[in-house]
């Protein structure tokens, strides 16, 4: 699996790298991009896989002295949920770090 990166901050790059790595462990084939769907009919992981992605992101954040809060009222929403695509999740991770979510 290859990653084409999401650009943006170091936090976003970290998140994209972690997500790509975990998806690779799940056997997701091909290029993972920001538009790769996570949840839903076309999603590359189920809700259990998503938890694993979030756990990995939390660990990565902590390793970098950051925090990642993966709770979201819209978690299961396919239209506005932060878990709908790799890009939306990476964006949320970056947004939290920009806001100093857990610093």
């Amino acid at each position: 699996m290859e990653s084409d990166g999401c650009g943006g901050s170091a936090a976003r790059d970290l998140a994209f790298s972690v997500v790509g790595e975990v998806l690779g462990e799940f056997g997701v084939e091909g290029v993972v991009t920001a538009s790769t769907p996570l949840l839903g009919a076309d999603g590359v992981v189920d809700s259990m896989g998503l938890v694993q992605v979030c756990v990995a992101l939390e660990d990565a954040a902590e390793g970098a002295g950051l925090r990642f809060d993966w709770t979201s009222d819209a978690a299961m929403s396919r239209s506005r949920g932060v878990y709908r695509t790799v890009g939306s999740l990476v964006e949320e991770f970056g947004r939290q770090q920009a806001q100093g979510a857990g610093s």
């Binding site: 938890v51 694993q52 979030c54 756990v55 939390e58 660990d59 709770t71």
Partner: peptide, 10 residues
């Protein structure tokens, strides 16, 4: 459960 089950997942 929200906070401690993820530790079990690890």
């Amino acid at each position: 459960c929200q906070q401690l089950v993820p530790l079990m997942v690890r």
